[in-house]
Amino acid sequence: MTARRLANSRPASKSRGKTRQKLLDAGLVLFAQKGVEGVTVSELEEAVGLKAGSGSFYRHFPDKGALLEALIEQEIEKAQTRRAREQGALDDPGQDVREALTLQFRLTLRGLRENTALINLLNRAADHFPALISRLRAAFVLDATETVARSYAGRIQRGDMVSADPAVLATLVQSTLFGYFSAEQAFGRPANAEAAETALIDTLVKILIR
């Protein structure tokens, strides 16, 4: 390929990459609202500025299932990045345990709120794409709990946290934070949301530290 052809191909490739990402973003929103089966290819095209019914979608994905799979891979990667930040705070021996736990809890709640659409997708797509959704659940629930448990085990060994099964403590924390988040989604954030969140976090810290 000549230098001119290479130069001309780069803008087109960059444009396709942007459109592909737009389809991933639109897919997350629409699939969460209607379920994968309830969204048409034309709707996805229209959502990203492509001509509805033109078939332009298929230049990027062979079908909606492939879009969902790519979307899940993207979200798993994001979850792993967020988890690394949480674990970094928990595993840092120079970080005060109270500060480390508080940071972990706030990051977890922030992650849940940022992933509201993804959580809705989990509920809607489970029946039609069980294998893909199982992978997503594993990344967001099982892997997250196991990672937190390993960090808690290190803190327990150093004498920073109560002497208890780290897996049980991790499950307690994750379940409590998810329950708090779920209540927000069901009933809305209360007027004193910041104070309520701080009180919850302070209480969890007191339960976990020696």
Results as ranks from 00 to 15, higher is better:
residue 2 T to I: 02
residue 3 A to H: 15
residue 5 R to Y: 07
residue 5 R to N: 08
residue 7 A to I: 06
residue 9 S to K: 09
residue 10 R to C: 10
residue 13 S to N: 06
residue 15 S to K: 05
residue 17 G to H: 14
residue 17 G to L: 09
residue 18 K to D: 13
residue 20 R to S: 00
residue 21 Q to C: 01
residue 27 G to Y: 06
residue 32 A to S: 02
residue 33 Q to E: 11
residue 33 Q to W: 06
residue 33 Q to H: 11
residue 35 G to M: 01
residue 38 G to M: 03
residue 41 V to R: 08
residue 46 E to I: 05
residue 47 A to R: 02
residue 54 S to M: 07
residue 54 S to W: 07
residue 54 S to R: 09
residue 56 S to L: 03
residue 58 Y to P: 08
residue 59 R to W: 09
residue 60 H to C: 11
residue 61 F to R: 01
residue 62 P to D: 08
residue 64 K to R: 08
residue 65 G to A: 04
residue 67 L to G: 02
residue 67 L to K: 03
residue 68 L to Q: 10
residue 71 L to G: 05
residue 73 E to H: 10
residue 74 Q to D: 03
residue 77 E to N: 02
residue 80 Q to W: 05
residue 82 R to I: 04
residue 82 R to E: 06
residue 82 R to C: 06
residue 83 R to V: 00
residue 84 A to K: 13
residue 85 R to M: 15
residue 85 R to A: 15
residue 86 E to T: 04
residue 86 E to A: 05
residue 87 Q to I: 07
residue 90 L to V: 00
residue 94 G to E: 07
residue 96 D to K: 08
residue 96 D to G: 08
residue 97 V to Y: 14
residue 97 V to Q: 08
residue 97 V to N: 09
residue 100 A to C: 02
residue 103 L to G: 00
residue 108 T to Y: 03
residue 110 R to Q: 15
residue 116 T to R: 13
residue 116 T to H: 14
residue 117 A to I: 11
residue 121 L to H: 03
residue 122 L to V: 05
residue 123 N to S: 14
residue 126 A to N: 06
residue 128 H to P: 08
residue 128 H to G: 14
residue 130 P to Y: 05
residue 132 L to D: 10
residue 132 L to Y: 15
residue 133 I to G: 07
residue 134 S to W: 13
residue 135 R to H: 03
residue 136 L to K: 07
residue 137 R to T: 09
residue 137 R to V: 11
residue 138 A to V: 05
residue 139 A to E: 05
residue 141 V to W: 14
residue 146 E to K: 12
residue 148 V to R: 04
residue 148 V to G: 00
residue 150 R to E: 10
residue 150 R to A: 06
residue 152 Y to N: 00
residue 154 G to L: 10
residue 157 Q to Y: 10
residue 158 R to D: 05
residue 160 D to H: 13
residue 160 D to Y: 14
residue 161 M to Q: 08
residue 161 M to T: 04
residue 161 M to R: 08
residue 162 V to G: 09
residue 163 S to E: 13
residue 167 A to E: 12
residue 170 A to V: 01
residue 171 T to H: 12
residue 172 L to W: 14
residue 173 V to M: 11
residue 175 S to Y: 11
residue 176 T to Y: 07
residue 177 L to V: 01
residue 178 F to P: 05
residue 188 G to W: 09
residue 188 G to E: 02
residue 188 G to L: 03
residue 188 G to K: 06
residue 190 P to D: 06
residue 191 A to E: 15
residue 193 A to G: 11
residue 194 E to D: 03
residue 194 E to L: 02
residue 196 A to L: 07
residue 198 T to L: 12
residue 198 T to A: 10
residue 199 A to R: 15
residue 200 L to T: 00
residue 200 L to C: 05
residue 202 D to E: 14
residue 204 L to S: 13
residue 209 I to C: 10
